[in-house]
């Protein structure tokens, strides 16, 4: 796939699902969705879909389409989807549920709460709880985004193909959050939390500040490894290749 196609997958499958976390954490977002009972599906022609299911004041992100969403938003091409996520004036086509105009407008407001944390001001970052929450979002965006890159980006196709099957567990110490990346049957997938059973490779990151600096490209990862602030063990080539996918993710994701 070309870069636009891969980026659209990253937005749909790694970034948009973060709303699930935002609704769980952010009081403004909680207030917005408290009475919502609907599903909003965003998909791109010939590409992936993500469905956000709102009920009981919560949001569940499904990285797939569903048969009858309350609202279905359709983008004709990856570039338009990407432009929309980058804040440009692109209106997706509501081909189902367009009568829910009110919720659509509110949904746009909700996505701004995601932006609030993904592009935080210094003031937002200065709050300890916000900081930890932002690091969690970064971790989840990283693992899910890395999988989209590994599975679909032509730039890393050879590397991806040559990566041995296994599980990489990533944990921010001391108490999480954690997430893992798995390659099975030639396909990379990610999940939140700790992998069931033993992993093949482990990456432990000493504290949220280092994790923030790592995910935002502000730290020398090799130096941090030597200092044992980041600890890796097990199948190191798997970690090394995921690192290459993350490097590529940072190039694609502005």
């Amino acid at each position: 796939m070309n870069s636009e196609q891969v980026l659209s997958r990253i937005y749909l499958r790694a970034v948009l699902p973060l709303l699930e976390e935002v609704v769980g954490y952010d009081d403004v977002a909680k207030e917005m969705v408290k009475s919502w009972k609907c599903s909003i599906m965003l998909h791109q022609a010939g590409g992936p879909a993500t469905t956000l299911v709102f009920r009981n004041g919560k949001c569940d992100a499904l990285r797939r389409s569903i048969t009858i969403p309350s609202i279905a938003l359709y983008l004709t091409e990856p570039a338009k989807l990407n432009a929309m996520f980058q804040g440009q004036n692109v209106i997706p086509i509501p081909w189902m549920g367009f009568w829910h105009v009110g919720i659509l407008a509110k949904f746009t407001e909700l996505t701004k709460r995601l932006e609030y944390y993904m592009q935080p001001t210094d003031e937002v970052l200065s709050d300890k709880a916000n900081y930890a929450f932002i690091v969690k979002l970064m971790l989840y965006a990283a693992v899910f985004g890395a999988c989209e890159v590994a599975n679909h980006d032509d730039h890393v196709a050879s590397l991806s193909q040559n990566t041995a099957e296994g599980v990489l567990q990533i944990k921010i110490l001391p108490d999480g959050p954690a997430a893992y990346i798995k390659k099975t049957g030639g396909v990379f997938s990610a999940a939140k939390g700790e992998a069931p059973g033993a992993a093949d490779a482990y990456m432990d990151i000493e504290g949220v500040q280092l994790a923030y600096e790592l995910f935002s490209g502000q730290t020398d990862a090799m130096a941090a490894l030597g200092l044992t602030d980041i600890r890796i063990r097990g199948l190191i080539p798997f970690v090394d290749n995921v690192n290459a996918f993350l490097d590529r993710l940072s190039v694609l994701l502005p």
Binding site: M222, G226, T228, R231, R233
Partner: peptide
């Protein structure tokens, strides 16, 4: 070294590819 040299020690002698510590 990490304040003066990228990676502190780079290449095949980087401690990162052993068991640091």
């Amino acid at each position: 070294a990490t304040t003066l040299i990228p990676s502190g020690i780079y290449g095949h002698e980087s401690p990162a590819i052993l068991v640091p510590g």
